[in-house]
């Protein structure tokens, strides 16, 4: 199987697991309570608030052939492109529309930063930056691939069942349109990356498997307990 096909197949598997997850379906069908919607919104914010920093890292390790795409993606996240909308601000707006107060919004920013600090501080199992870069690229691209397919759906259930106005859902709406292009570009970037850094198939497959050993979407959007139920580790 080609690199692209392998990656897309993994992304499809991860996305399918997310949409068939009970926690996701509760939100989608309106059976969840307000607290569950708020936890979901908080988790989306925590996951993506530091995306510009992650993209800056990916930019620094990008092969020459994909540098421009990654740079454009990063500038777009920062609001330094022609549209001028910083994506973290859209996430803050989402939290505010959900009724999060100033202190709660600040907490989300602190938690997102803490996660970055933790990632930077921990011992690394991989032996080189090229491997860490590949894993980060695979995970980042997986979110764009998933969001390009599900962001509208998520926006819809937040509007319908949580009463968030369209204005508050800009982050989702923006991602549902923009990420269709990004997702395709990211798949190109992954192929370029693998070629440029001369990963052999087995090496690449191991990093792909390790990156998606857990369902990253369920873990980040619904937490460890939902993930454990999904993987059968908890009843």
């Amino acid at each position: 199987m080609s690199i692209r096909a392998l990656v897309e197949s993994e992304y499809a598997r991860q996305t399918e697991a997310l949409t068939s997850n009970e926690a996701f379906q509760m939100l989608e069908t309106g059976k969840a309570d307000t607290k569950a919607y708020n936890v979901f919104i908080a988790n989306v914010c925590k996951t993506h608030l530091r995306s510009p920093q992650i993209l800056a890292f990916l930019y620094s390790v990008a092969p020459p052939a994909s540098t421009e795409d990654v740079k454009h993606n990063m500038l777009e996240e920062l609001g330094l492109d022609e549209e001028g909308i910083p994506h973290p601000k859209l996430l803050i707006k989402l939290a505010q529309h959900a009724g999060f107060n100033e202190c709660e919004v600040k907490t989300l920013e602190v938690l997102a930063q803490d996660e970055l600090k933790r990632m930077t501080s921990e011992q690394i199992l991989y032996g080189s930056m090229k491997e860490i870069g590949l894993s980060a690229l695979l995970e980042t691209a997986s979110f764009e691939w998933m969001l390009s397919r599900l962001a509208s759906q998520m926006a819809k259930f937040l509007e319908k069942h949580r009463g968030i106005s369209k204005d508050g859902l800009d982050w989702f709406l923006h991602h549902s349109e923009v990420d269709i292009r990004h997702a395709e570009e990211q798949l190109d970037s992954i192929e370029e990356y693998v070629k440029y850094y001369q990963f052999d198939q087995s090496h690449f497959e191991s990093i792909l498997e390790l990156t998606f050993r857990e369902n990253v979407f369920i873990k980040r959007y619904f937490g460890e307990i939902a993930l454990a139920r999904h993987s059968g580790m908890l009843d």
Partner: peptide, 12 residues
């Protein structure tokens, strides 16, 4: 703090 070992099984 994470106390996991890193590359080479090494931990400080």
């Amino acid at each position: 703090e994470k106390v996991d070992f890193g590359h080479g099984g090494k931990a400080p």
